[in-house]
Amino acid sequence: MAEDRRTLLKVLSGVVGTSVVGAVAAPALRAVLAPVSLRTVTGVGELVPVVALDAIPSDGTPVNVPVVVEAPMDAWTRQPPTTVGAVYLRRTEAGVKAWSSICPHLGCGIDYDAAAGKFACPCHESWFDTDGAVASGPAPRGMDALETRVVDGMVQVRFEKFKIGTADKEPA
């Protein structure tokens, strides 16, 4: 009988103790895990005007232009115009094409080698054709193409970041 009572007390202790811990841990974890659903930094993923159409060479040579977002939010701060990244723009017969300058291999910044007429990532020597496809090197996929639009003579780009190191282009 006394042993039953002791067991009951033990179980009750466990239940009450766990509830106390759970009651505080639940909101704490909810807040810690908030970034899963919280959009803390804005500016990336929006159509942003980057350069005048006239400034892109008509011979098809790519140009590197920074992407400047007017008033991005970083958590609580509304930032002044901020450079969030860079894109390569190139005129083609089908219009202006844009690629992220972030190498899909391991995230380095890609150069354009004018002499070779190819994009080159200096970190691990991935080479890309002017249409962004992998020419040689370790890159698992071609350069990430971005959506562009021309409005009133200004080229707009939807600057996005993608998962690094995968064969498929997936949103980061």
């Binding site: 639940a26 909101p27 704490a28 909810r30 807040a31 908030a34 659903s37 919280l38 958590a75």
Partner: peptide
């Protein structure tokens, strides 16, 4: 903005 932030 943080879920459960005010509660914590």
């Amino acid at each position: 903005a943080v879920p459960a932030g005010a509660l914590v």
